[in-house]
Design a protein around this nucleic acid. Sequence first.
DNA 1: GATGAATGAGTGTTCATTCAT
DNA 2: CATGAATGAACACTCATTCAT
Lengths: 197, 197, 197, 197
Amino acid sequence: MPKVGMQPIRRSQLIAATLEAVDQVGMNDASIALIARIAGVSNGIISHYFKDKNGLLEATMRHLMQALSNAMQERRAALPENDPRAHLRAIIQGNFDDSQVNGPAMKTWLAFWASSMHHPSLRRLQRVNDHRLFSNICFQFRLALPQPQARAAARGLAALIDGLWLRGALSGEAFDVELAQNIAVEYVDLQLAKANA
Amino acid sequence: MPKVGMQPIRRSQLIAATLEAVDQVGMNDASIALIARIAGVSNGIISHYFKDKNGLLEATMRHLMQALSNAMQERRAALPENDPRAHLRAIIQGNFDDSQVNGPAMKTWLAFWASSMHHPSLRRLQRVNDHRLFSNICFQFRLALPQPQARAAARGLAALIDGLWLRGALSGEAFDVELAQNIAVEYVDLQLAKANA
Amino acid sequence: MPKVGMQPIRRSQLIAATLEAVDQVGMNDASIALIARIAGVSNGIISHYFKDKNGLLEATMRHLMQALSNAMQERRAALPENDPRAHLRAIIQGNFDDSQVNGPAMKTWLAFWASSMHHPSLRRLQRVNDHRLFSNICFQFRLALPQPQARAAARGLAALIDGLWLRGALSGEAFDVELAQNIAVEYVDLQLAKANA
Amino acid sequence: MPKVGMQPIRRSQLIAATLEAVDQVGMNDASIALIARIAGVSNGIISHYFKDKNGLLEATMRHLMQALSNAMQERRAALPENDPRAHLRAIIQGNFDDSQVNGPAMKTWLAFWASSMHHPSLRRLQRVNDHRLFSNICFQFRLALPQPQARAAARGLAALIDGLWLRGALSGEAFDVELAQNIAVEYVDLQLAKANA
DNA sequence: GATGAATGAGTGTTCATTCAT
DNA sequence: CATGAATGAACACTCATTCAT
C-alpha cells in the first residue's frame, strides 16, 4: 500500500526490527531478509530508506545513542546548576535507563562496539559518544575537584559505568539496576569526599 | 619433517593466525580462507585440527583466557597469602598484561563478548571466566571486609577493570596501562580504607 | 501548464535522457531509475509513455535511425537525379553526420547492435535499416555499373562506411570525419572508374 | 571429484561455456548461474578460477583474440617476406577464419565492443587488438606504397574487414566468407595498383 | 598429514514493474 | 498526469564444509 510520507514511519519500523533481529540471532546473522521479515516488509525496501545495510545499522546505532542522550537529559533538566553530585547521579541513572539495559539494546551495543573496531563510520559515532560521556562527567567533577583529580575521577566513573553495564549484559541474569547504580554512586561519593580532605 | 606431534604446533599456528585475521578485518570477515592464508596452510586443514570454524574460535578464546590466567598467576605466585592489597594489585596488573591489551587480543575479546550472547559454547566460557575474576577479587576483599561490603567492592573492581579495558580498547589511542592501573588500585585502596573506619 | 500534448515532449525528453544515460554508464547499467533521474521525472512515468523499458529502448533506436535518415535526405534533396557520385557522396556524409558520430549516439548504436542479436524487435529494426542503406547505395551504383559489380560495390561501400564508423567509435580518439569520408569517397571513385574501363 | 591440475581444463571449459551462453541469450543475460549450468559445474567455481565475472569475460575476450591471432599467423607463416599482397590476403583470410565467423564468436565480439566503451580493462584489450591489425596491414602496404597512401589504405582495409564482418554478423544469414574475402582482396588490389601508376 | 577442487546455500544489493494516492 | 512507495525475483559473489587425491 504505497503512501506518501512513509519515510519516518518506515525508518522507525526498520530500526525496531533491527534491534529485534539482533536480539534474536546476533548482528552477524541479522540478515536483511530476517530484518525485513520481522518488520513485515519486503527485502528491497531497506535500500529504499537506507542506502544499504550499513546505513540501517548506523541509523540503529544513532537511535540507541539518542535514547541514551534523552535518558540523561530528562533526568538532568530540572537539576540546579551547581550540584555535581546530583548531576553525576542523573548521568549514572541515565546510563542504566530502561532503554539501555533491555536485551536488544545490550546485544546491539555490544555488537556495535565490536564492529566499530573495523568500520570507520561506526567508529566515529562510537568515539563521539564515548567522549561526550567523559566530558559531561569531567565537567561535573571539575566543579568540586582540581583538574587532575577531576580527570582521573571522570575516567574512573566512565569506566565503572561501562564496566557495570558490560558485566550486567554478559551475566545472563536480569540486570540489577539498583545494585549497579549504588556502586557507581558510591564511587562518586568517594571521589567527591576528596574535596573536603 | 616429523609427521608426529604436529598437532600442538599447528593448533598454535592457527590460533595465532586467527588473532591476526581478527585484528586485520574483524571477526565477521575473518574467513577460514583468510586465516589459512595468514597461517600459510590450506583451507581444508582447519577442519582437521578443529572440528569446524566454531571450534577454532572457541580454542582461540580459551587461548586468550589461559593467557590472562597465566598473567595473573605469575604475578601472584610469590606473594604472601595474607596481603589482599598486593593480590588485588597483581590481579589488576594481570588484566592489563601485554597479552591482553594488544590490538589483536582486544579486538578478539570484544568480538567474543558480542558472539557469546548468541553462542552457547562461547557463553559458557565467558561465564566461567567472568565468575573466576569476580571470585578471586571477592576472596581477597573478604580478608579485609565483611561479606556484603566485600561483594560490592568486588563487583565494583571487576566492573572497573573491564570498563577501563573496554574504553581503552575503543579509544583508538595507545592503551595507557599505567593510568588504568592507578585508577583501579586507587579504587582498591578506597575500599580497603573502609576496613579501618 | 497545459496537460494536453505532453506526450511528444515527454517522449523526446526520455529518449534524450536514455542517450545520455547510455553515454554515461552503458546500456547495461542504464537503469530506469537513472534515466528518470537524468530526465528529472519519476521512475513510474516511463511505463506511462512507453510500455516498458524495452519500449523506451526501441523508441530510442528509432530516433537514431530517423536522425540518420534525415541526415541523408537533407543532403540528397537538392541533387540532380542522375549523378550517382554525388548521391553516394551525400550518403557517405549523412552517415558521418554529427547526429551519428557523437559519443552518446555511437555508444547507443553499438549497444543496440549487440542487443539486436537477441531481441527480435530490435533485430527487425536493425535489418530494415541495414537493408535500406544497402539498397540506396546499390541503386546508385546500378546507374553506372552492371548489376553484379554494382551489388559487390554496394556491399563493399556499406561495409566500409560501417567499418570506418565502428573503428572510429572504438578508437577512443575524436572522430576524424574528414579522413573517414575521404577513404569512403575514394572507394566510390575506384568502383565508378570500372565503368569507363 | 576434486583433482589437482584442473586449472587449465576448467578455464577452457568455462570460456567455452561463456561463448555458448552469450550465443544463447546475449552477454547481458549470460548470468554466472547459466554459464555454470552450461559448463556443468557449480556457480561458485567461477570465482575460484577467475576472480569474478569480469575476469571470466576478460579471459573469454583474450581467448577470441588469441584465436584470431593464431588464424592469421598460421596463414602467414609460410609466406615469403616480400610479398605484401600475399600477406594482406592472409590477414584478410585470418579475419574470416571459422573461429571468428561462427555465431558465438560474432555475438561475443559484438558484446565486447559494446562493453569496452565502459569497462577500462576490456577497452585496453580492444585497443591493443585494433592497433595490431592496423599496424600489420600498414606495414605490408608500406612495402609497396609511400607512407601517406599506405596509412590511408591500411585504415581503409581495416575498416572494410571490420565492416564486412559486422554486416555479416548482423545480417542474420549465413556468413558468406568467400564474398567478403573477394571484396576485401579487391580493395587490396585497387590500392596496390596505385604503386604502378 | 595435507591439499585445494568443488559444492551450494546464503548474502547484500539492484532493478523493472506495479499501483494507491 | 504524475508520483514514489513497495515488491520480489534475479544477480554476483562469499563462504564453511567436504572429500578425492
